[in-house]
Every structure is written in structure tokens, then in C-alpha cells.
């Protein structure tokens, strides 16, 4: 799980996104523990406070639960929550793309055909693979 320290996305958001992906794809199953804060901080070489913030945010979203002294575990409905979170994230990216198209005065029909063409041309990853390759940022 690499983080990109050059990105404009804060690291704790990157961690949240990664863990969403891993829960959605079943890398982490319900009631299984996530890596400890210390272990993840050392693996990613990021501040432990940042990892802790990411875990707290995940708990707030209902994807994980914390057990004092035991660690952080995937919630039993974590997978469905993660899926819906992923959908939200995809929608967010799409809306950025649509905004970009609108601001360039592209017709709605063009947007639709662009979407369909992109969907066809992107190779679909093999089952269970991490889905972070679908990065499609609206930024320049």
C-alpha cells in the first residue's frame, strides 16, 4: 500500500481510500484486524497520528470498530458500507469529469459517448485486484 507524498490529496485520505478498497475487495474480511497504527505508520513511513486519524474516520463511517487494547477490526457490514463509499467516490470523480466537460461547453451527448468509450477501452482488472488503477482525476 504505497502513499503518494507528492499528491494534493492529504495522506490520511489516501489511507482511507486504500482501506476502503481493501475492505470492498475482501482483502480484509469482517471481524478481521487491520494492521496496528504503529505497524502501518512504519510500513508507509507516515506519522502515526495520521494513521490514527484515518482509522478514526473509518470508524466514524462505520467500516471498522475499535477495541481498546486489541486494535481495529473490520465491521461486519464493512464490505457493503465500503462498496457504497466506493460508489460515492466514483460518483464524485464522475461529477468532476462532467464539470470539466460542461466548462469546456461539450454537449451532453458527447459526454455520454465519451463515458461509454472510456468504459469499453479501459481493461477491466482481474477479479479481486486492487482498483486504484481507475484513477481519473479532473485536475490538470
Amino acid at each position: 500500500m504505497p502513499v503518494d507524498p507528492h499528491s494534493h490529496v492529504p495522506i490520511y485520505e489516501q489511507i482511507i481510500e486504500h482501506i476502503h478498497g481493501r475492505i470492498a475487495t475482501g482483502v480484509y474480511q469482517p471481524d478481521e484486524p487491520l494492521p496496528s497504527i504503529r505497524a502501518l505508520a512504519l510500513e508507509l513511513l507516515v506519522n502515526p497520528n495520521t494513521v490514527q486519524r484515518a482509522y478514526q474516520e473509518l470508524e466514524r463511517q462505520g467500516l471498522v470498530y475499535m477495541r481498546k487494547g486489541l486494535g481495529v477490526f473490520v465491521a461486519s457490514n464493512g464490505r457493503t458500507t465500503a462498496r457504497s463509499k466506493s460508489e460515492e467516490a466514483v460518483r464524485e470523480r464522475f461529477s468532476q469529469g462532467i464539470d470539466l466537460g460542461r466548462s469546456a461547453r461539450l454537449a451532453e451527448q458527447t459526454l455520454r459517448s465519451l463515458f461509454n468509450r472510456t468504459l469499453r477501452e479501459r481493461p477491466s482488472p482481474p477479479q479481486g485486484h486492487d482498483r486504484s488503477s481507475s484513477d481519473k482525476r479532473a485536475s490538470s
Binding site: V3, P5, H6, I11, L45, N47, N49, T50
Partner: peptide, 16 residues
């Protein structure tokens, strides 16, 4: 931790 740096990636990794 208080640190100064020119290396932005390091800052982003370490600083909150």
C-alpha cells in the same frame, strides 16, 4: 516533533 525541511514529500509524510 518539530522539524524544518525543504523536502515537501517528507513534510507531507511527517507533519500534521
Amino acid at each position: 516533533l518539530v522539524f524544518s525541511s525543504h523536502a515537501m514529500p517528507d513534510v507531507q509524510r511527517m507533519a500534521d
